[in-house]
Structures are given as C-alpha cells and as structure tokens.
Design a protein around this nucleic acid. Structure first.
Length: 848
DNA sequence: AAGCGAACTTAGCAAAATGGAC
DNA sequence: GTCCATTTTGCTAAGTTCGCTT
C-alpha cells in the first residue's frame, strides 16, 4: 500500500542538508564523470528526478515550443572550431574531468593566465575593501551626508503636472494628521505613556483607488509620487535591565555585568538551545563582540571574562523563558489589552499619506539590536548587530510635508525629498554595511504597481522567448568562447530557472547562481546528463541529478570545465551577470535574468492548472491548484525545513487511513453476504479486493481503542445527564447505571470483534443497494484521503508560499478561481488578497 | 570593465494567529 | 472553551539590477 506514507527514502532527505559542506561536488564529481560511458539509454535516473522534470521546463531538452534542435547533430563531428574553442576530442571511454590536459590555446589574454598552472584560488574576489577593524562595536555614526548620491534618476521632488487629487478621504486624514504626527513623536519619546487623545477611528474611507484601471503600471516617468507625508519610524524600546536576581555566571560565579554587556549577554541567552549556539563561527563572532563590549563596559564586580566556555548564560535564559511563560499565561483580556496598547503607540507609524492617499507602511519598526543570524556558513554570523540611532537614519519625505521629530534629544541623520524613490527611511547596518529601508507594505499602490509591471514584463517576454531561444541555441556553438559561455548561461537561466549568480565576497556565505557556478558544482555524464549540486541563495542546496540537456550544452560544459581548471574555478570564466543581462536586454527592454524565473514560473503554473478537473469538488480543484503550485516551487527550488513532527503526523494519517480501510473491510464483508446480483462485482471489481496491510493485530488494537473511547464518552454523557438532573432537582442516576452502560458497550465491541474475526459481520437490515452506496462512499473517502496524505508528504520540504507570493502572476490564479468557481479566499490568505487587489478583477478567460 | 552604491525583490525561518478536534 | 497542529504573518537576510565612478 501506501509507500507514500512512509517517508520517501533517503534521496529526498538529503535534499536540504542544513549545512551542506561547500565542496559537496568535488569528490563525487570524479566518480560520476569517471563512470564508463554507458552509451545511450540505460540511465538509471531516480524517480525523484523524473518527477521534477515533468515540469515543462525542467527537462531542459524536450523543449516545448521552441525552435531548437536545429543543428546540434550535425556539428557533432566537427570539433574544435577554432582557436578559441578547443573541444576535447570526442568523448571516449575516458571522461571529461580528466581529459588529457592540452594546454589552452592562447586566446584572450587575461583569462588564460588565470588558468595557468594553479587553479586560481576560488574566485578572484573584489579587491578586499580593507578589513575594517573588527571592533565594529565602534560604529561610525557619522550621519549620512545628505545628498551623497545623485539620485538614480534626476530630479528630486518637483512639482509635476499631475496633482494629487484631494479626495475627501485624504482631507479627513489631513485633519487628524496634525495631532497624530506630533503625538507620534511624543509617544515615542515616552514610549509607554499613552498620550494621544485624538486619533479617532478615521471612518472607513472607502477610497478604492484603482490605479490598475488607469493606463497600466507606472510608466516611463521616474517619479513615483508627488506628495508624501509620514511620521518617521518606530524605534524598539530601550533596554530594560534584568532583575537583580538574574545574572549570568562566569566560571560558576555570578557576574555583575554592565547594562550594556548584559543586553548582549541576553541576546546570546536567547539563542541558547538553537543551532546557532552550537555553531562555532557564531560563538566565536559573538564572543569577540561581547569582549569588545566588555572592554568598554567592564563588569562592575571586576570579573575578568576571558573564555567563552566559562560563560553561563542559562540563568538569563531561564528568566527569558519564565517571562515568556508569564506572557502566555495572561488571560485573554490581558493579552488583548496589551495588544491594543501596542497598537496604539504604533499607530502613527503604520500608515503614511502618499499623493493624498492613506497607504500602509511595511516595516516601520527599526530593527532591534541582536546577534546577526546569517544563513548557511556566513562568516559573520553571531556578530553583534547594533542598536540604530536616529542619527544614522535618513528620512525621505515630501518637500512640503512636516518632517517628523526624532525622539527627544536626538536628530535625524538627514532628511531628503526624493520622489524618485519609494522608501520613507533608510539606514546602514553595521554587520555588512548593507542598506536597510522602510518601504510601503505589499498592498500599497507603489508596491502593487511594481508588482504588476514585473508580471507585465514577464508576459512581454512571451513575445520574445522564441527568438531568444533561437539565438542562444545558435550561439551554443559559437566559435567565440565569450559568446558560447553567454549562450550556455542563458540556457541554464532559461531552462533550469537558475538565478543570475553575482559574484560574492569572502565575507559572505559561499553560495552561487548561474554565472558564479564553479566546476565542482557541475558533474557530467555522457551522453548528455548533467548533475548540479551547489548552494544557492540562502544556502539552500540545489541538487538535480542527471538532468538531460541539449547535447551542445553538455559539450560546452565539458569544455568550460576542462583543465587546467580545477574544482574551485568558475565554469563561466569569461562572463558575469552584467554580460548576461546586457545580452538579454538586446532582445527586450528591461529584460534580465530574473525575468525568466518569473516568466517560467507563471507559464508553468498556467499550464499545470489545465489538469484541474472540470467536474469535481472544490477540494479536488484545490488539490490540482496545489499540485501546480508545487511544480512551480520545485522548478524554482523553493524549499523549507521538514517540520519537526512531520513523521508523527504522517504516522497518524497512516492510522486514520487504516481506520478507513477497516470500515471498508467490514462493508465489503457485509456486501458479500447479501449480494444477489453478481454483476455488482463486474461493475465494481474493486469491491472484491481485500484491504492491504490491515493486520489482525492492528484491528484488535483498533477495536479496543474505539471501545475505550466510547466508554469515555459514556462516562461523560452520564456526568452531564446527572448534572442536568441535579439542576432540575431530580434524583441522580446511580453509578450502577453507568456500569450497565459500560457493560453494554463492552458487549457490543466483543461481538464486533468476534464477527470481524469470523469474517461475517452482522448485516442488519441493509440491502445490496445500500451497501453498494456505502462501499462507493468509503472508497471515495479512502482515495481522497490517500491523495491528501501523499500530497502532504510530497510537499513536506517544498515551500509553496514563495512562488505564490513572488513568481506566479496572481491574475492566473484569479482567472482560474473564476473559471472553476473556487473562492479566491481559498487560495489567497488575507495579506495576499490585499497584496493582489490589483488582480482581482481579472476575467476567467485571462491568459498570462 | 570592474567595482561600488543604492534601491528594490525574493527568501526561509520563527512567532503569532487561526481553526479543527475534543 | 481548551489544546494542539497548521497556516499566516512578520522579520530581516540575501539576492538582483542598474547607474555612476574610476
């Protein structure tokens, strides 16, 4: 039976090794490529793989609608077209990776030396920008100079033609604004004090501004808004010192930390027990920064903290846990009240006024200090992320708007009025020097416009994709290495939905995308199977075994991997993302690598949705939807961790499945007794089939179980009835009554068990027709349940959300919902409904 | 042509909210 | 209503892209 229910074996599981080693590929590579060439057919591809490749795109070779194939075959014999390209002599028993080294012909100067005798160490990194003294606790809080950058595209807020229409709604907002703005600041300064009086429910301003009904997306203009008012940002609360009795220990003894150090110790206490606390790099980085803080703010009792291993943060952790418990133990009312209070003080920041419309702000909260939780093998994980001061923040706001006051006694780093950008505030983070921004929420018009134009761009690609594929497929054999690499990269981006793959620095996790693939990430197996194994964005492993590619792509990869390159050398040494994107842009304005992901995801989804059963329950249709969604997620390699209790949940489902089978068994045996028309079995052959894996042992246990449950129910019922009698001042039933009832139940189950063992359950008054109906019903339920269970298992490590949120044009979904009469709420949660309001009016016939 | 700054999208995980079983 | 598992949302890290500078 259900092999589905057993966790699909191994292969699945190593899909996402939490911390895969960097050089995953390196050794298995030789293994693979050394394999003697099995000619042609006999490839033992794994199930899993096949599965994945059923998505139109996955199987790179059997392209759908393209003009490919053309000429690869004919070029086979002609090898080595010129100086630039030296193709290894036709594959012979011997495999690619160790092809006879044959010095690269000269060709383009620079690159070749790189391959010289020694494989260049990993990737040539950008000239290291000087290692800043690690201390980093010394933040450079020099305020960002106002207009250091020339805004990307000209002009700051200029008056422009289209004035913001003052809707009545916006007016009402303006009215409250004065108070709100000021209050905001005040509130923030005193944080908890619940000052403001006025912010009244601003009535439902039913302003539905349908920007999408207007001329489609934001056009050529670079200006994104005309007026912008907001209240600035919300700072996290100041640090609250621990109660006196809560102290970390050092070498077994209590330490009186300075407040500054205590806060940092608290950050660490918070990660105790997590994977991070077991991570060497994390601990090292943390302790380094902790020491830095301790140096400036030494323990008050003179303790000298020197060794990480002697630090005991557990007391702090225990305290945090207790606090958490306390919070959990609050009554409903208390919780509600606390929440309302929180919302009240945040209220000024949740919305802004953009072109006179009230719009939701997204991340208005300044990120609180903490320990940096870099993903994968990030060299900086564990470092102290510092508290952001107002002086580090740049505010972007309309020219004529009132600039929000910074918290009392502080200043904003700077204030600018740039309407070509969409952020309200920005700051630079101290770990990586990355910029952080406060943007509007996904449901805002600004974001909605961007979103829609993203999908429009992807749709536009439809018109060019044929030409593009033709072009790069032709170039796969181009004599110029540069072109050939570019074409091959384009192929991977298009067919395998790889990301562009920018270069990364030494101080980041070692992850790659298309252009940054290294030899160790790609294994070749003749005639044209390629295995990819690398860590992509977020250090999620991309592992695809034996993908069938165009023969020419296979050849190219072999060439690109050739000696003298080593495992650490890049496959695409002549190109990088900019080259690739410039190439794409030749075909279509605004086309870049990422558009292919959007395009392929959406087109795949639309295609897969055709599997939806025309007739069928909503549940069945939803299943089809999720299947399609899943295929897209697999295409994009969107993964998630298998939930901790997935196994348990599956076991439970297995049990429930057996319970269904148990019922079916009984019905089947009943039917067998009454059947008078043998045609029933002709019509429903399955009605004769026995249930798989229904052991007597299990049924014994099951019946016992059911019996016990029923007894429990009887007891409760008895209690209830007595309770009622009491309240009506009547006499209670005697305990003996309950005993009798229990006895009845026990008798009943005894009979059931006996009958079951005999294989002849009591039929009662049921006739054949009734039993047939019941049988059909139970079989349907069984099937539905099976499908559901296997679906759940299939999806356990696949993240559906990411593609739903970012890659699948919501109009496809809306059209589908309308065509199949499925309520949109079934597929879009509240936030997505908001985010995609622009797509809600799509007609059922709409096509991506 | 490489490298950087800036701004924006995409991503998985953890916390919070929800909803279904009891 | 309570409890628990699942779903949704929040958070912020990690990508891509593109223009500008050197």
């Amino acid at each position: 039976m259900s092999k589905n229910l057993k966790r699909t074996a191994s292969t699945e599981n190593d899909k996402k090794p939490k911390k895969a080693k960097q050089n995953i590929g390196s050794d298995s590579e030789s293994e693979l490529s050394d394999a003697p060439e099995i000619n042609g057919d006999a490839q033992p591809q794994t199930q899993v793989k096949q599965e994945a490749s059923q998505s139109p795109i996955k199987n790179a070779v059997d392209t759908t609608e393209t003009t490919n194939n053309t000429n690869d075959a004919k070029d086979a014999p002609k090898k080595d077209e010129d100086t630039h390209m030296d193709e290894p002599n036709e594959p012979k028993s011997e495999s690619e990776s160790d092809a006879p080294k044959k010095s690269t012909k000269k060709s383009n100067k620079d690159d070749d030396d790189e391959f010289g005798d020694k494989p260049k160490p990993k990737k040539s990194r950008k000239s290291a920008p000087v290692k800043k003294e690690e201390s980093d606790a010394d933040d450079d809080d020099e305020p960002r100079k106002p207009a250091k950058k020339a805004p990307r595209k000209s002009s700051t807020s200029t008056k422009n033609s289209q004035k913001p229409q003052k809707t009545p709604a916006s007016k009402s907002l303006e009215d409250t604004k004065e108070g709100t703005l000021l209050d905001a600041v005040r509130l923030q300064a005193h944080y908890l004090q619940n000052a403001n009086g006025d912010v009244k429910e601003e009535g439902e301003e039913e302003e539905d501004y349908k920007w999408w009904a207007e001329q489609g997306g934001f056009g050529d203009g670079t200006e994104r808004w005309t007026t912008l008012e907001h209240n600035g940002v919300f700072f996290p609360p100041e640090y609250v010192p621990l109660p006196k009795q809560v102290r970390m220990k050092y070498d077994g003894k209590i330490v009186e930390l300075s407040q500054e150090a205590e806060e940092v110790a608290g950050f660490y206490a918070a990660v105790l027990g997590s994977d991070h606390a077991a991570d060497e790099v994390f601990n090292k980085n943390f302790f380094h920064d902790f020491l830095t803080v301790l140096k400036d703010h030494p323990p008050l009792d003179g303790t000298k903290i020197k060794e990480f291993s002697k630090c005991d943060f557990q007391p702090i952790r225990d305290h945090l846990d207790r606090e958490k418990e306390k919070k959990k133990a609050m009554t409903k009312d208390e919780k509600k009240q606390a929440k309302e209070q929180r919302e009240e003080i945040e209220k000024p920041f949740t919305h802004c006024l953009l072109d006179g419309r009230k719009e939701k702000v997204g991340n208005f909260r300044i990120e609180p200090p903490s320990l940096f939780r870099g993903r994968g093998a990030h060299p900086k994980k564990g470092k102290l992320k510092l508290r952001i001061k107002p002086e580090q923040i740049t505010i972007n706001i309309g020219k004529d708007a009132t600039v929000p006051d910074p918290p009392a006694g502080t200043n904003w780093g700077s204030v600018q009025h740039d309407n070509t950008v969409t952020w309200l505030a920005t700051w630079k983070e101290n770990i990586n020097g990355a910029y952080k921004y406060v943007y509007l929420a996904p449901g805002s018009t600004l974001k909605g416009q961007s979103d829609m134009s993203k999908f429009e761009k992807a749709r536009e690609l439809k018109n060019y994709i044929g030409k593009i594929r033709q072009s790069y497929e032709g170039d796969l054999q181009n004599k110029v290495m540069f072109d050939r690499q570019r074409a091959t990269a384009a192929y991977l981006v298009d067919r395998l939905a790889l990301r562009a793959g920018n270069e990364k620095g030494e101080d980041e996790a070692d992850t790659v995308g298309c252009c940054s693939l290294r030899c160790e990430h790609v294994m070749l197996r003749p005639p044209n199977l390629v295995t990819f194994d690398f860590l992509g964005k977020d250090s999620v492993r991309f592992y695809q075994e034996d993908i069938k590619v165009e023969p020419q792509v296979f050849k190219n990869l072999r060439i690109f991997k050739k000696e003298p390159k080593g495992p650490q050398d890049p496959i695409f040494d002549r190109i990088h993302t900019t080259v690739l994107n410039n190439y794409f842009r030749n075909f279509m304005k605004g086309l870049s690598a990422k558009v292919f992901r959007t395009y392929n995801a959406s087109i795949t989804f639309q295609e897969e949705l055709k599997q939806t059963p025309q007739e069928g329950t909503v549940a069945e249709k939803l299943l089809a939807f999720n299947r399609a969604n899943r295929n897209v997620a697999i295409l994009c390699n969107h993964q998630k961790n298998v939930s901790k209790n997935h196994d348990a949940a599956m076991d439970k489902m297995g049990d429930r499945l057996k319970a269904l089978k148990y019922q079916r068994r009984k019905l089947r045996q009943m039917l067998a007794q009454v059947v008078d028309d043998k045609d029933v079995y002709k019509e429903h052959p399955s009605f004769k089939e026995e249930e798989s894996d229904l052991e007597d042992e299990w049924m014994d246990a099951h019946e016992e179980n059911e019996r016990d449950k029923e007894i429990e129910r009887q007891k409760k019922k008895f209690e209830r009835e007595n309770e009622k009698l009491r309240s009506e001042d009547q006499k209670e039933m005697k305990p003996g009554e309950l005993e009798d009832r229990i006895k009845d139940v026990e008798e009943k189950w005894k009979t059931i068990t006996k009958e079951r063992r005999s294989g002849k359950p009591d039929v009662g008054k049921k006739n054949q027709t009734q039993l047939v109906t019941s049988m059909q019903k139970i079989e349907d339920r069984l099937e539905a349940f099976r499908v559901n269970a296997s679906n759940k298992d299939e999806v356990k490590d696949v993240s559906l959300g990411t593609s739903k949120i970012n890659y699948i044009d919501p109009r496809i979904t809306v059209a589908w919902c309308k065509a199949y009469e499925v309520p949109v709420e079934k597929v879009f949660a509240k936030t997505l409904l908001t985010k995609f309001t622009w797509a809600m009016e799509t007609s059922p016939e709409w096509k991506f």
